[in-house]
Computed example of a mutant assay.
Amino acid sequence: MNDHAQYADEDDEIILEAYCVRCKQTVEVEEPKPVWTPRGMPATRGECPDCGGTVFRMGATDLHDKSKRPDAVQVGGGNRARLARDTAYIAFAEADESVAQAIAADLEKSGIAIWLHDQGDSSVQWAGGVHPALAECGSLVIILSAAALRADDVEAAWHFFKDKRKPVIVAQVEDVETPDAIRRSPRFDFGADYKGALRQLVQAL
């Protein structure tokens, strides 16, 4: 089965596959739901049939044809509600968007308020040079991978939180060396034990 939606001839059921970060394998998505990322990109969220965890994949399917694309989320306007102070900002490299979305969904299931880093904001000049969500969130979760170590915006996020003396937590998804700047931050290894790392992350937040 390829990366696109497949259809059963008898009932036109949409069958999707996605990578499960818990099981570390590609699985068929159960109860797929069309969703949109904060920057308006189509994606699908569902459950792994083996572990019951959240799986996530980017790209549009026929499910999105009946789903209205939401307006872009606005942060920083003078007439909107501020983010809760205990909201966790999740910073990640573009290559890690699927795993970041899966972790974010599991955190939300546990009652944690989150804000996902928007890859589309790199060209926006915010007042003070900082995205309002970075300034308002109470903690930072870094999805640590080889790609994240090369991402300037991810590094900028952890430097901002360190400078503001706000908590920085590392969610490690690949076997890479932790940068010196965040070496003393709590680190949970999602690559080795997803369920255990998620439980520890929820407790830390």
Rank of each mutant, 00 (worst) to 15 (best):
Q200L: 12
D50E: 15
A204Y: 09
G59Q: 08
A18L: 07
I90Q: 03
H159R: 13
K164R: 14
T54D: 09
V173K: 03
V29Q: 05
G40E: 10
D3V: 10
D62T: 09
D163H: 09
D62Y: 00
H4F: 15
T178K: 05
A60C: 08
G111M: 08
R199F: 02
L63E: 01
A8K: 15
T26V: 15
H64Q: 09
N2E: 11
A8N: 13
A146T: 12
K68T: 09
E17P: 04
M41L: 15
V130C: 04
D189A: 07
K33G: 01
N2G: 06
L198G: 00
A204D: 12
I14G: 10
D96R: 08
P70N: 00
I142G: 12
G78M: 04
G59L: 03
P34S: 10
V168Y: 01
V29L: 02
R69E: 09
A95Q: 13
I112K: 11
P179V: 05
Q74K: 14
G46F: 04
G76Q: 01
D96S: 06
R199Q: 13
Q203W: 10
G59R: 06
Q119P: 13
Y7S: 13
D189K: 08
E10R: 12
A133D: 01
H117P: 01
I169T: 13
A104H: 05
D96A: 04
S110T: 04
D118Q: 07
W115Y: 03
A181C: 06
F160H: 15
Q203M: 11
R82T: 08
H159Q: 13
Y19S: 05
C48E: 06
G129L: 02
V75G: 11
L205F: 05
A84D: 14
G59H: 05
R184K: 13
A8D: 11
V202Y: 03
F188A: 02
G138L: 05
H4T: 11
K66C: 13
R165S: 12
D106T: 03
A113V: 00
I112L: 04
D11Q: 00
E174P: 03
K164F: 01
Q25D: 14
D118N: 11
R82P: 00
E108H: 11
E97L: 10
P34V: 08
V130H: 10
Q74C: 14
G53Q: 14
G196Q: 05
A72M: 12
P34Q: 09
G52T: 08
V170M: 10
G52R: 07
R199G: 01
L144T: 00
V99A: 06
G129N: 00
K162I: 10
P38D: 04
W115I: 08
A91C: 06
